[in-house]
Design a protein around this nucleic acid. Structure first.
Lengths: 333, 333
DNA sequence: ATGAAAGCGCTAACAT
DNA sequence: ATGTTAGCGCTTTCAT
């Protein structure tokens, strides 16, 4: 910048003004500065600019478990779309349920002075963010309920969604309904299990712990279903509480030729669900909506809103496509 | 930082040393500084640090067309995984085939002094990056061939993949094969069409322009297929040169009840392809591999490699799953 | 309308 | 082993 000023024969400040499109510089000088900048291939340094200004960096960070999961990818896309108008750019990273990684990345992003954080927490407690928030750092928790931290968040009604799925299966005559979720240390997994329990209780069905499974990957879920079906008393229906679990179940049932025999409802959309045979019934969330709401909340904080923190709980939609409407064939019901 | 130094009763430099884990500070002082930092809730400012060091910002940017597309999401994930070891964070954004957005975002990221750029270009020419690269900025083009720019890139062999798909269909008796791709202004779309042409020519089949379509979205592709099938001389096979086009075709064929009548091969994997009925035959790329190779190339540049720029052309794999092996039923063949 | 000087938070180079 | 000084690239006073 100094070189540009020298070449243009003006002061540093004038160059600064031109670069920032500030008013009150004669056109002659603007031209002179611009051509000097061009000649010297001058590139404005936002870091230095922000340093002096002490202002926003116009960047935010999104931390999710797995960026290649459809849900998270849709979230990222929606967030990017929402903040783009304001010229805000977004960092993102995958946590893979590792709390350590979350802490490390958050520290990194804070050192980079991002304006805000959108977090799908891997950590059991986000209390460590309290002091950051007190210092003016904006945080919105997505997909999961914040723990030990008073902040904005956006989730879906997991208990209600799971209840809805389970009740739907019960209404179709099922009494042995398997539940396959993510690790139960995870908030959403527990909430969905609670919804499942609730539905069973409301129908006066007993809870059979041998029907409750965790499976983190598609392959693990597939293996679980295969195992379940080989048991002496297999379920007549399955509720998969995660998109990867649903994919695994679809795959396993198909391999076993049971896709039209065993009922299946999944939580969270999977691609092509309506084109499979049978179509896969899903309790759908709207990741685009979640992302937009979260980004909007973050932006409001950045705009200085001091409102009380609040959570948004979005509804889910049960999409009946066939697999969830299969009736039990065995006479044990 | 000054406050921390004051509270700890040491100099600025000592604090700096402690913060950066540099050697040669007595343990007593380390403790004193750390507790002072804690007390004052000191947060290191990486921007200021980078400013002085004139070093790398340990950040890179990935620009793709649509972050919610499976391919791009897998790319992002692979890149994040690859650079994480080096403590590098990644910005990402969607371009939606808008060249303007690409230019604007690139300028933004350069102002932020990202160390490198991974770009799936929307622009017809990337000549504008020449001067940046001359100034030491690292660029790797992914998925598409760079235009007017000598740089590293990673692509798959689109011509060969499309040829393979088309040849496969021809080998199964098809002579009227529709081609549905992205807009043909796009590099990969053209390359895939060329592969399609090549295969037709090699089989002495004439090219019928009425079988060539562009469709950017799933819905558009679905509409195209519906229209095609309603024509007087419908094709007996379809080659969809993009994952969204494949999804649209699957959907339309199914609605028409033609999924077991009309052959279909898609370029680029779609989820659940093997679980559909029939399974969808795909010319698969490996987005994980593409991302890893691209990130590796970028890292090598950041490590100062001055090697001649070069391109990596990865192979594709034809996965025969059923839909591509359907034979024509009409007797026009 | 333009410029000079001071300083944002940090670290490299040189002391001590 | 620790401190001092200067300066990274920029913008904010406060002049002129």
């Amino acid at each position: 910048m100094r070189d540009v000023a020298a070449l243009a024969g003006v002061s540093l400040k004038t160059v600064s003004r031109v670069v920032n499109n500030e008013e009150g510089v004669s056109e002659i000088l603007v031209d002179r500065v611009q051509s000097a900048a061009e000649k010297l291939r001058y590139r404005h340094n936002l870091a230095a600019s922000n340093l002096r200004r002490g202002q926003r960096t116009k960047s935010v960070a999104l931390l999710v478990q797995d960026l290649s999961n459809d849900f998270s990818a849709a979230l990222l896309r929606a967030i990017d779309d929402t903040v783009r108008d304001r010229d805000v750019v977004v960092f993102s990273a995958s946590l893979d349920e590792e709390a350590d990684r979350e802490r490390k990345l958050v520290a990194n992003f804070i050192a980079r002075r991002v304006d805000g954080l959108l977090l799908m927490p891997a950590s059991p407690s986000q209390a460590y963010l309290q002091s950051e928030m007190a210092a003016g750092f904006a945080v919105v928790i997505v997909d999961r309920i914040p723990h030990d931290l008073s902040t904005d968040y956006v989730v879906v009604d997991n208990v209600e969604g799971a209840n809805k799925a389970t009740t739907h299966l019960i209404a179709h005559g099922h009494r042995r309904i398997a539940f396959i979720s993510d690790d139960l240390t995870i908030d959403t997994a527990r909430a969905r299990r609670d919804g499942y329990y609730q539905a069973l209780r409301d129908a006066d069905l007993s809870i059979d712990e041998t029907l409750i499974y965790s499976a983190r990957t598609v392959e693990a879920a597939s293996a679980v279903v295969t195992e379940l079906m080989a048991s002496a008393t297999p379920p007549t229906a399955i509720f998969t509480a995660r998109n990867t679990a649903t994919m695994g179940a679809v795959s396993a049932l198909r391999k076993l030729g049971l896709q039209n025999t065993i009922a299946l409802i999944g939580f969270d959309e999977i691609r092509m669900a309506d084109l499979l045979d049978p179509g896969i019934s899903i309790v759908a969330q709207d990741p685009g909506r979640i992302g937009r709401e979260a980004a909007r909340m973050l932006i409001e904080r950045l705009d200085g809103s001091q409102d009380h923190h609040h959570g948004i709980i979005l509804p889910t939609t049960l999409l009946a496509r066939g697999s969830g409407e299969i009736r039990p064939t065995s006479n044990e019901a």
